[in-house]
Simulated scan of single mutants.
Amino acid sequence: MPYIEASVRHRQFVAAARSALARDGVGRTSLRAVANEAGVPLGTMQYVFPSKELLLRAVIEDVIEETAEVFRAAADLDGGLEHAVRRGIAEFWDRLVDGRSDLQVMQYELTIHALRTAGMNGLARWQYERYTAVIADWCQQAAQRAGETCAVPFAQLARLVVSSLDGLIMQYVCDPNPARSREDLEAVTAMLVGLAGVRREPHVVAG
């Protein structure tokens, strides 16, 4: 077998683990199962990830970064705060939720696993801190570029975006109904935009 750098193996095994976890869940996914998914001997897997917990930690970190990157890339910052919120939420749903219940179930399961596992509960907190920080950042940037103000702190608006999406995603994976989910997503987005109370900052006239 040709030599492959540990960093490449790391990515390969995380991808294989994500496939196995999405299909079989945390409880039924072992290092051996992931090694089989990746097409390598168990010993090769254990060289990079000596334990299942280390592998799950890497998967959680990978999923968090992927979701954060989607949030970061989704928003159009040049059309003002309302446009950014509407575009960001819609793009997130299209890319990571619609038709991807397996990903969302895996993500919830990993979050619960992190909360219940000693030494990993900080990952769950970091997950939500990461998401809200990214959203707060692009909300603030969009408002500043358009010369707008927001009626609530950007961090609070971001937390409510994340919590609203969490609820809609849970409903979607428990009872998939794309048309209903779209209607609810639009209604929630309208409520969030209303909460933001976007206003254009008054121009300051030099004396």
Rank of each mutant, 00 (worst) to 15 (best):
M1V: 11
A6T: 15
V8C: 02
F13Y: 15
A22H: 09
R23K: 14
D24R: 14
L31A: 11
L31G: 10
R32C: 04
N36A: 14
A38F: 03
L42N: 10
G43W: 06
G43H: 07
G43S: 15
F49A: 02
P50V: 11
K52R: 15
E53K: 08
L55W: 07
A58F: 05
V59L: 10
E61T: 11
V63C: 10
E65S: 09
E66C: 05
E66F: 08
A68H: 03
A68T: 02
E69Y: 06
R72A: 15
R72S: 10
D76A: 11
G79T: 02
E82T: 05
H83D: 09
H83V: 12
R87G: 02
G88L: 03
I89F: 06
A90M: 01
A90T: 04
R95G: 02
L96F: 05
L96D: 08
V97A: 09
Q104R: 15
M106W: 08
I112K: 13
A118H: 09
G119I: 04
G119W: 06
G122Y: 06
A124G: 08
A124H: 09
V134L: 01
I135N: 00
W138E: 02
Q140S: 13
Q141P: 00
A142T: 00
Q144A: 06
R145L: 12
T149G: 04
C150A: 14
F154M: 13
Q156E: 08
R159F: 03
R159A: 12
L160K: 03
V161K: 02
D166R: 04
G167A: 12
G167R: 07
I169C: 05
I169N: 03
I169P: 00
Q171T: 10
R182A: 15
E183G: 06
D184S: 08
E186F: 06
G194D: 13
V204A: 04
V204I: 10
V204R: 09
G207P: 05
G207V: 04
